Amino acid sequence: MTTTLLFASPPLWPAYEAPLRRALDEAGLGDAALVTEAEPEAVDYIIYAPNSDVKDFSVFPNLKAVLNLWAGVEGVVGNETLTVPLTRMVDSGLTEGMVEWVTGHVLRHHLGIDANLAAQDGTWSKSVPPLARDRAVGVLGLGQLGAACARALAGLNFDVAGWSRSPKTIDGIACHHGDSGLDAVLARSEILVLLLPLTDETDSLMNAARLSRLPQGAVLVNPGRGQLIDDAALIDALDGGRLAHATLDVFRTEPLPPEHQFWAHPKVTVTPHIASETRPASASRAIAANIARAERGEPLHHVVDRDAGY
């Protein structure tokens, strides 16, 4: 019998206990112990949430793997006590949620919905947007979530180009990589979506210089990581008129402090980190499937590359 330990803040246990037990049973692991406390030597797997307080994984001598409950692993990937495989969360619920949020906000900006809502003053004034095929959209980050969003936007007939740090090929998407590829995508993107992982290389990627490479009046949409953007540079670009708007779902400090200038800025839309929320039912199935693979001696899915950081 395996023992799986859920390391997360207390509020998560009521939401995850039943879905995890059901998923483990469906995966043929109905006799597995699912606990929030256990003797270290009894623990086979750890389901890890970045908001948990565990720091030292070396105390678990029989640990086989750590399965991250969320998509981002930046809070744990550099932990030197973690020597067993670390997996990141990839599941249908995360992907679907991100695609819905991204396409919704790209369409919102493309169609000028904010301006239409603001102009409900009795004045009949038309402003017809271009068709999607005439709107250039860029997606930075072509991993699981970025690729899915790029395909969805292309499916709506947007002119989509994507960038990743290593070469990628996605049908219907103009894929770029490297420094010159990044410049090419920035220069054409009337709407830019950020879906890169957070690493040393991507921290503050969107600084003043790169924001200045976007077309005049471009829109920035960030459901990726708050640290991808230099906040002060973004405010300057908005105030100076270089950018028309920024829709932000993630921030350097979360929850976003009430006094932060993003809240009151007329060209910033804040959403409270909801673009791709981990949903207990689908996340539990992904975790149980990976534990079942490990118990059958099969390679785990979505193992993190420690050198790359994701």
Rank of each mutant, 00 (worst) to 15 (best):
L24V: 02
D305M: 10
T2V: 09
L6Q: 07
I191W: 04
R21W: 06
L24P: 03
D31E: 15
A161S: 15
H105R: 15
A42Y: 05
G146E: 08
G78E: 12
G104C: 00
A18W: 04
H265W: 13
L67G: 07
L220M: 07
R21P: 06
W263D: 01
T169E: 14
A174F: 02
M89G: 04
E37G: 14
T247K: 01
G146D: 04
C175F: 11
V304W: 04
A232S: 08
D31G: 01
D91V: 01
A281C: 03
T95C: 01
A161W: 04
L248R: 10
L192T: 02
S92G: 00
D134I: 00
P223K: 13
G30C: 10
L196S: 00
T271M: 03
A33H: 11
N51P: 00
G141P: 06
R151W: 02
W124E: 04
A65R: 12
G172V: 05
A42T: 12
P40Y: 05
L94Q: 07
A8V: 06
S58D: 13
H105Y: 15
T253H: 07
R133Y: 06
L142W: 07
T253D: 08
T202V: 06
S9K: 14
S276G: 15
V128R: 13
L107A: 01
V106Q: 06
R213G: 03
L214H: 03
H245S: 11
G224P: 04
V99P: 14
A115N: 09
T87A: 02
P50T: 03
K64S: 03
L182P: 10
S127W: 08
D183F: 02
P215M: 01
L153M: 03
E259I: 00
V84I: 04
Q120A: 10
P10I: 10
G75V: 11
R285N: 04
T269W: 14
E80T: 15
Q216E: 09
W70C: 02
R279I: 15
D134R: 11
L63R: 08
E26N: 06
V76F: 13
E80S: 15
V54R: 01
L5I: 09
L198T: 05
S204M: 11
V139R: 01
L186M: 13
M98Q: 08
L195R: 08
F57Q: 01
